[in-house]
Design a protein around this nucleic acid. Sequence first.
DNA 1: CTGAAAGCGCTTACAG
DNA 2: CTGAAAGCGCTTACAG
Lengths: 351, 351
Amino acid sequence: MARRKVTSIDVAREAGVSQSAVSRAFTPGASVAAETKERVHKAAISLGYRPNAIARSLITRRSHMIGMAVSYLDNHFYPELVQGISDQCQKRGYHVLLFTAGEGDAANTELQRALDYQIDGLVLASVSLSSEIANRCHAAGIPVVMVNRVSDAPTASKITGSNELGGRTIAHFLVEGGHKRIAYLAGIEETSTNRDRERGFMAGLAEKNVTLHARAVGNYDADQAAKGAVAMMQTPAPPDAIFCANDHMAIAVMDALRHDLGMRVPDDVSIVGFDNVGPAQWPTYSITSFSQPVDAMIEATSETLFEAIEAAVEGEAFEAESIELPGALIVRGSSKNPPGCGDTWALSEEA
Amino acid sequence: MARRKVTSIDVAREAGVSQSAVSRAFTPGASVAAETKERVHKAAISLGYRPNAIARSLITRRSHMIGMAVSYLDNHFYPELVQGISDQCQKRGYHVLLFTAGEGDAANTELQRALDYQIDGLVLASVSLSSEIANRCHAAGIPVVMVNRVSDAPTASKITGSNELGGRTIAHFLVEGGHKRIAYLAGIEETSTNRDRERGFMAGLAEKNVTLHARAVGNYDADQAAKGAVAMMQTPAPPDAIFCANDHMAIAVMDALRHDLGMRVPDDVSIVGFDNVGPAQWPTYSITSFSQPVDAMIEATSETLFEAIEAAVEGEAFEAESIELPGALIVRGSSKNPPGCGDTWALSEEA
DNA sequence: CTGAAAGCGCTTACAG
DNA sequence: CTGAAAGCGCTTACAG
């Protein structure tokens, strides 16, 4: 077992060139004679040499690593995001250093460690950022992109779906669908997704002169969502429609209502979700849901991130961007729908 | 925007000590006076200093990064694995460098890059490894652990569920449940999971003197699985039971049979899956499934990995381990069950 | 307990 | 095009 690793000096000796020449042979665009390059590569292969990316990072001050913080991998939306962003990074020669963290202090500690690793950029997938860390990143010239979560950190870029418009659209959709007792099942109260979706929803109801009939909190958790929905349905005047703040909860709610309460969806109650996640599309659930354009979000995240990284490398300042990507209400079988409604539904022009 | 990063030399100057003292103040267990340490920490905080993990790695030859290669994040089994292993790593001060790769050449290229980053260990979640890379890892003293996938690389450790026993158990279960036309829906043919589950299944049928009635290939893909199952059901003598090589396919199959063919499960056909993944437990599916103990697999993977890393650090040789973790057939509503069957079902002693 | 010095494995001006 | 040399930001014997 070769304990000692093969270095560029070993290769230089083998190839009969200087150590600098070895380095150049592995640096795209460096000035080396074709013949030298070939000789070095041959020697490298025979010795099993590969450049040490750590040593390279130290001197180039670019690690080619992107920190990515995630939580809630059980919501299918996030694995998709992680895989997509990782693929995009690899395509550009970058790699994802993963940080799994909930909210709060532990997350901050982990994020701090991400910085210790000299990451070139940071992606936060639905994890919020303390302003202290945001400032540190900014000071260190490390671009930060928040996906599906907004904070007031002014230096971080933000990529989101149309949460507020989505909530508002769903409100109109349910009212025009003839529902009289409309309820909201909230996600985690502190998150921007919940805040924005609920704000839009409430605004939409107000525009229709409808007041919210009931409200429960599911905290984006399947069990809590099911409990909350069941409790609402067991009141004297149960809702005839529930807007669940995401599909992950909507699925749990449908299961609970059907199997624990023997109810029928949408005959007894309409269910609308948010995200348009894979399982929501499964025929068993067929959930009417406002879509988040995952692929576009992945694309926008990578674009924003790598543009900022390039700018940082050039020594230019980069502006934080806030991009809201359009979604649409995908109409399926879990809701009673307005008359003449097609596969999708949008606010009418004058609304 | 502070372009230049704060280094230990800056802190040394601020604190009025040597650069070595700064280093010691950040090295647990190093010999520093308490007062010096405190002075250094104070200076570090005032300057916003944090040790550069890259520079540290270069000299300690330990990156504290674990490479982790995954694919198929749409099968819910893998996000769980990724999150669990990442959590375990972080708990020990390590971090996961993620590699998303399918099979084949691209995967090998990416794995090679993982090595360039001087990872301290490599976890392959359902990704197979070319023997060339395996040898490189071994030569470099980097332990490799394969989870839920086996290859013939003799130097890699392997953590799996009981795939063969699971297949065999399901065969007996279906025969004793009175099924006469038993089919198999295969995953990806080349994978060890498919090979082992099918081998056990065929052996189990043979023990019962039953021959396989039909076979289709779903490649662990929802669409292909649905098509394959529908095709089998539309033959003159359709199966009365299908063992799907994983739950991901079993779910797609149930949806297709129910919604496209209007069939009832298990009245018209029994469905059995493998993995006991979250959605399989949802009441809508309630799939009888042989469980893979995800938590135990995460635990075993981390144990094996970090023991080997410790051994490597001590300069000891580490033995590749092969651990097969027990699972059980969880009986739910998607199958007709043998008489007197409880919540779980196992081969009888004499079988 | 502390500092000066060597060195981890590279990249990159600088001369030639 | 090529080599000798400096240096990236640390850790760690070695003396004291």
